[in-house]
Design a protein around this nucleic acid. Sequence first.
DNA 1: TATACTATTGGAAACGTTTCCAGTAACGTT
DNA 2: AACGTTACTGGAAACGTTTCCAATAGTATA
Lengths: 339, 339
Amino acid sequence: MTTIKDIAAYCNVAVSTVSRVLNNHPDVSADTREKVLDAVRSLHYVPNNAARDLVLPQSDMIGLVVRGAENPFFTPIIRAIGKSCEAKGYTMAMHQIPAGADEVGEGAKLAQSKRLKGLILLGGRYDYTQEDLKALGVPFVCCTYTNHFGDLDPSAFSSVSINDKAEATRAVNKLIEQGHTKIAILLDSKNDHSISERRYKGYREALEAASIAPDEGLVCETGSFTMAAAFKRTEQLLAERPDVTAIFAVADTMAIAAMKAIADAGRSIPDDISIIAIDGIEMSLYTTPTLTTLVQPQASIGEKAVEILVNVLDNGADCSHIRLETTLRPGGTVGHVHS
Amino acid sequence: MTTIKDIAAYCNVAVSTVSRVLNNHPDVSADTREKVLDAVRSLHYVPNNAARDLVLPQSDMIGLVVRGAENPFFTPIIRAIGKSCEAKGYTMAMHQIPAGADEVGEGAKLAQSKRLKGLILLGGRYDYTQEDLKALGVPFVCCTYTNHFGDLDPSAFSSVSINDKAEATRAVNKLIEQGHTKIAILLDSKNDHSISERRYKGYREALEAASIAPDEGLVCETGSFTMAAAFKRTEQLLAERPDVTAIFAVADTMAIAAMKAIADAGRSIPDDISIIAIDGIEMSLYTTPTLTTLVQPQASIGEKAVEILVNVLDNGADCSHIRLETTLRPGGTVGHVHS
DNA sequence: TATACTATTGGAAACGTTTCCAGTAACGTT
DNA sequence: AACGTTACTGGAAACGTTTCCAATAGTATA
């Protein structure tokens, strides 16, 4: 293990000089710089991050806490965050946590033990308390947060997300416009304090506005956020409710699983059943028919999150809340109702 | 920031005592232990990893270098690695690198700067040199390596993978068994020193064994490992070669994109075109028809990789090379040739 | 020539932790 | 009562880096 001391000895300079060269400090003569750089190369020096992190007040790391990283929706967001961090001179430290875990608590521990400068929370609940958030100790951005802050102080944190409730309403309206009234919703849980809950509210609101009576039999909770569960639940729906003509899925993955169940049941999309979702994952372009979905600007979500955070970190900017819009990508899964 | 010193002062003990409590050393009295633990809680102490890593000869981290982490095939492997690491008392530090990068060089830097104990390489080339591998400096496992080691010393590293060439042959044989002779292969590149190259060789071998003349017009290189490229290339194939009756895709993602192109062209699967692939990603269960594919034991790959590595690390075991088998999952995409 | 700079360098402390070594106290043994 | 053990505790060095402060040499100014 070559250390900075070895370099110093090799070059007959002080360790402080080597450090200055390594950190591009200005007051080093060109000669010395050259000599040190040569030594760095020939001795294969690699800096020891632990030592650097120890002495520096903070590392250059931004923590990314992801709940449910297996969801392909997150993949482009994570990649965008990684790229943006790099572009701004930060390192992304990703931390996956299980579905049931408490991402704020995890984040707090992570932030302290790894001396993170900031945090990005991806995929989680929205029932944080003011104390929860304070516990984090570093600036942070909720990445797929919602527009509902409850009693939280919006100046204490940042967020970037779509307006889940409004977008859900928009999606369901697309179905209503085509004459559908027997509209099912496919979601993991309608009261889990997550995004699903807010999309469920949007669904309810759309029905209400169209004077369609709510029908509990069309609310399909899967219990878990998996394709397998969505598939099974859709099978059950089709068996129990032959009158259903449309499905709003709260995520593309669920919609794709539902499409399979519909096809297996010998029903046709969109002639027998229409389906619409929110997310816009890559895979939804390759279903047959192509999934009609509200596409979230995944790359922008990641970029904006980093931008906001770095602005707070580097420039002392205020926290901000960015609401992005989805884009309707008309596919072939929504059609007129036939009755 | 509460430190070990604060705890020591608070409890009127020495820092070494606090450290002993924190590390579960035996020679601490129950009273003292209790007192310190109380202080840890009430002062909200969180250990500083940088300091710990600095003084310890190595961290408890296993590095995971992934090339092409956006491929959904890797997702379950990565999750399995994370879980297994945790179960064995290690921490997984994941590092994504771009498609073009050199994973061995990246790994070497990572290993030194983060003081990793070991490395797992996921998704890469197979043209490493002996020096490349030596440069890593820590034990490591190539996770989706192949059974072809060239001139490498097999005792210098471990690997876990399927036999790509043999499995490709097996897949293509499934098509040949159904009477197909006009069999296209869909792959990113046939000579990129990656897994695709080896699967291409398996394809060639199957054709040869069946005395089917190779046909360059049926070798569909996409240039990049994306669904969009696979889709386009399949469109082109269908337009140029109306005689093609079957496609072997080197990955499920490519197969799914191809299926879309086939459907869009108004051809039927499997009546007009059969398709088979290798991987077994979750999404391939939800295509219509269900994709026929050779399923890789993704969780096992991850688990085995960690197992091998930890065995080397903890028990000084020798390097080993594990070859896993795929399972044919019959879907609905392979049928008899109609001509 | 003396003075005040500037440019460059070296020395040393500090970051928070672990661990080795030495020390103390209590206790049992002879 | 002296001794050896045992159980516990404290002190201090060490890990590799950054950065503040002081020191030196050289250069320009008066």
